[in-house]
C-alpha cells in the first residue's frame, strides 16, 4: 500500500472539502478499495472516510425510498421496506459476497466496485487498459470465463461485479451525487459506462464527485420481484450471470416488466430490448424466450464465455416464468 493520509468526514460538505485536489479517494467500508490499494491498483494519497455520511433509509414523498450512501449492505437488505417493496434488491445484496463483507460494505461503495478481471488484478504480470490506459489487454485470448459478452470493446472485456447494482438498474434507481459544481442526480443506467476506448473510467462521475444517496422510485409490481444468481459454487462467488426481474401481468398480458443482467457486461445490463418486446405480449414462455434471444442477439463470445449467452437466455426465461407463473 502506498502511503496516504486519512481523514474522516461527518457529512457530504466536509467530505467534498477534504476530497478536493490531489489523488484523494472516498473510503466506505473498504471491502474493495482496501484490497485495490494493497494490490497497488489504487494509490490514493489521501483517504476521506465517508462512512459518517447519512446511513438513513427513509420514505420519499412519492412512496419511493431514499437510501443514504453510508447505509451498510446488510442494513439495506434487511430493511422491511426493501424486503416487502423491492425484494429483488434484498435478494441481490444477500446473493453477494459474505455476511461479513455485507456488514462492512456501504451502498455508495458498492456502486464503485471494480471488476474482478484477473488480468486487471495482476499488477505486475499482465497488461490491462483499465489499470494502465493504453497498455493493452491480456484478457483477450486468456481466461475469460467471467468476462463480458455484451457491450465490450477491443480495449476491455471486463464485467462489473456487483449484484446489488443489477437490481438497482432494473429498479431505475436515481443516484444523488455532489461535487465541486454542486449537486446533481443521475439515472442509474447512466452511472456506469461501457468500456469503449476509455475502460479506465468505470462511471461518469467527475473527479471528486461523491455519491450521497440512492433513490428508489415507487414500483408497486416490484413487490414480487426477484434476483437469480448463477455461479460456480453455491455461495461466496461472483456471478457467472445474474438476472434481476419484476413483471406486471394482468389477465395474462404483460403490462410492464423490468429486467437487468449481471455478469455479462462492463456495466449492469438493463435489458431494454427484451423489455420493449415483452410489454403488451402474453406472458408465455415463448414470449420470454423470444425476448431473451433478442436481448442477447448482439452477444459476442470470447474464448471461455460463450456459455453465458445460452445461460443468460435460459435464466431469463426461468425467472420470468417463475414470477408470472407462466407455463409453456
Amino acid at each position: 500500500m502506498t502511503p496516504f493520509s486519512y481523514a474522516r468526514a461527518n457529512n457530504a460538505a466536509e467530505a467534498l472539502q477534504l476530497g478536493r485536489g490531489g489523488a484523494a479517494n472516498y473510503l466506505g467500508g473498504g471491502t474493495n478499495l482496501v484490497d485495490l490499494m494493497r494490490e497497488t491498483i489504487a494509490k490514493p494519497d489521501r483517504l476521506v472516510d465517508v462512512t459518517g455520511l447519512s446511513d438513513a433509509i427513509t420514505d420519499t414523498a412519492d412512496d419511493g425510498l431514499l437510501i443514504g450512501a453510508a447505509v451498510r449492505n446488510t442494513a439495506l437488505a434487511e430493511h422491511p421496506a426493501v424486503r416487502t417493496r423491492y425484494p429483488m434488491l434484498s435478494r441481490a445484496i444477500l446473493a453477494g459476497a459474505s455476511a461479513q463483507i455485507r456488514n462492512m460494505a456501504t451502498v455508495g461503495g458498492n456502486l464503485l466496485q471494480r471488476t474482478r478481471c484477473t488480468y486487471f488484478y495482476d499488477t505486475d504480470g499482465s497488461r490491462c487498459n483499465k489499470r494502465v490506459p493504453g497498455s493493452g489487454c491480456d484478457a483477450v485470448g486468456g481466461f475469460t470465463r467471467i468476462h463480458a459478452v455484451l457491450g465490450a470493446s477491443p480495449a476491455c472485456v471486463a464485467t462489473h461485479p456487483s449484484d446489488m447494482c443489477v437490481a438497482l438498474a432494473a429498479l431505475d434507481a436515481v443516484v444523488h451525487v455532489e461535487g465541486a459544481g454542486g449537486a446533481r442526480t443521475l439515472s442509474f443506467g447512466d452511472l456506469h459506462r461501457l468500456p469503449g476506448d476509455r475502460p479506465e473510467l468505470d462511471t461518469v462521475l467527475e473527479v471528486g464527485e461523491l455519491i450521497t444517496a440512492i433513490e428508489l422510485p415507487p414500483l408497486p409490481f416490484a413487490a414480487s420481484s426477484t434476483y437469480r444468481k448463477v455461479r460456480d459454487r453455491a455461495s461466496y462467488a461472483f456471478a457467472l450471470i445474474s438476472v434481476a426481474a419484476a413483471i406486471d401481468v394482468v389477465d395474462g398480458e404483460i403490462r410492464d416488466v423490468r429486467l437487468a443482467l449481471g455478469g455479462v457486461a462492463h456495466k449492469p445490463w438493463r435489458a431494454t430490448t427484451a423489455e420493449a418486446l415483452l410489454r403488451g405480449r402474453p406472458a408465455t414462455e415463448a414470449a420470454f424466450r423470444d425476448a431473451a434471444i433478442a436481448e442477447l442477439a448482439d452477444a459476442r463470445p470470447l474464448r471461455d464465455n460463450g456459455f453465458k449467452i445460452e445461460l443468460a437466455k435460459r435464466t431469463i426465461v426461468a425467472v420470468l416464468g417463475d414470477l408470472s407463473g407462466a407455463t409453456a
Partner: peptide, 10 residues
Amino acid sequence: AEYHVPVHLD
C-alpha cells in the same frame, strides 16, 4: 476469491 474451494453451502 478466484480459485474456488467448497464453502459451507456446497
